[in-house]
Design a protein around this nucleic acid. Structure first.
Lengths: 255, 255
DNA sequence: ACAAATCTGTACGGTAGCGTACGATAGAGG
DNA sequence: CCTCTATCGTACGCTACCGTACAGATTTGT
């Protein structure tokens, strides 16, 4: 009874053939899971871009010019207040997509999408997306699902940011990031961490100090290295576990 | 260039004919905006339910049995932690729908949907939705859009709950609620407000006291009356304004 | 090599909100 | 009418975090 919404493996194009575009290996999960025809539709309008740290993919309240299939690195979705304070409301790596509003016909977003860890992405002009989606129902379905995953993530982060303490949230964030970029070495300043955790930089120093003294991470001038995932999982709040569990449930098609 | 994603008025069925179901006037914006054929598909599987205060529409992590077109009253989407603390991550009135995960084929949600202000809703068995959506592309589009609106709302609440103070958040919440239920009289205990604001009940007493002394509301034993919207808008944080602005932008089809 | 910029550790007073507890009061139901 | 329960006001010590500031350390540019 849930057959229509689940997808069989095996009809993916990229998982069984060409796996690079413009000289760049394709890691993006959505692209990797598309059937051949849809891939070609997207490829025709796609271009590779580098995403250096602090590169802004979409600016808050401005027209969305490009949408991005994130291929590597880490993109943070931030909500930024008029006084400059900010909080992260979403986190995207190679499993994701930036520019969801255009997938349902909206042209602006109230959030800023900002590169936290350098990487690559494939971008498509927002104006082209509408036609592409009409030809690519499978892609559209993926995006709608991803929108819900991101909403779920946002909901959990909302609660977490309200209820849990800085060091717990920092541990959670580091774990989530490692899951997305794949390496335990993360290039991050305390300043950018503070923007995502919605706290002041000095609080990050303290929180990072706690995790460092416990031996879970080492921190030095913009470079975090995760030493003990198990330790971090203990130090993190339940949010990390909850999010993982739910995402896994959804991704398994057992829902 | 945005034609496909916008909808012409005039093809709506309910806006120009029958406007009740099972003796209940239809206020739900999504239903009111559907073409005739799609309406009939939904009606065939739909039943009216009352939603008294504290009625749980969906329980966290349990299988979603029913989805709901909210018709009146107010539904709060809550994230509840293992220690019992909770925060609101979404707020739905007659403009909305509860049970979005099933709209993309998921069967569980990590959040609880709880009635805050009594009303009515039209529910549909979750098992029936898949077939309905296959026959009702317009409905599906509406739900996908609503998912994004809810994600936006969640993102703003996430930031708000982290960065703004209790009395500001309370003012924001009251305004959002009045917008959804239509009346300035809200039946709410401080206890339930504290669950939504993610704070303790005593903090609500203080915050409500501030708003009451300022003359913006009167509060008495489970009944709030909004006396001055203008006052509340001043007392609220920018989040209320931001959310309204963005939602209006999207709803206007100017995106 | 030197200057400039960036990043980090730390400190200090201030405060919003926490956890908790207790009593007061108003409706509801018998 | 009276009891019982739900709801609300308030108080107290406590703590995590804020805003801010500044100095040391490391990297970057020239």
């Amino acid at each position: 009874m849930t057959k229509t919404s689940t997808r069989k493996r095996g009809k993916s194009f990229l998982n069984s053939g060409k796996r690079s575009f413009d000289g760049q290996t394709i890691y993006n999960a959505i692209l990797l899971d598309l059937p051949r025809r849809e891939c070609e539709n997207v490829f025709a309008k796609m271009e590779l871009v580098q995403t250096p740290p602090r590169f802004v993919l979409n600016e808050s309240a401005e027209y969305i010019k490009f949408v991005y299939f994130v291929n590597s690195g880490l993109i943070s979705i931030l909500n930024i207040m008029s006084d400059g304070k900010s909080v992260e409301v979403g986190l995207t790596g190679k499993e994701g997509f930036v520019g969801l509003p255009v997938a349902v016909g909206f042209q602006t977003s109230p959030t800023r999408a900002l590169t936290q860890i350098a990487g690559t992405a494939f971008r498509v002009n927002a104006k082209a997306i509408e036609n592409i989606l009409r030809e690519c129902p499978e892609l559209e379905k993926h995006l709608h699902r991803y929108a819900l995953e991101l909403a779920l993530q946002g909901a959990q982060l909302a609660a977490c940011n309200r209820l849990h303490e800085v060091d717990e949230r920092l541990a959670r964030w580091l774990l989530m990031s490692q899951d997305r970029v794949g390496t335990p070495n993360l290039s991050l300043t305390q300043e950018s961490l503070s923007m995502m955790l919605g706290t002041r930089r000095a609080s990050v120093t303290i929180a990072a100090g706690i995790l460092q003294k416990a031996g879970f991470i080492t921190y030095q001038r913009g470079h975090v290295k995760i030493q003990s995932r198990a330790g971090l999982e203990n130090a993190a709040c339940e949010c990390y576990r909850i999010l993982n569990k739910q995402l896994k449930r959804w991704q398994n098609n057992s829902h």
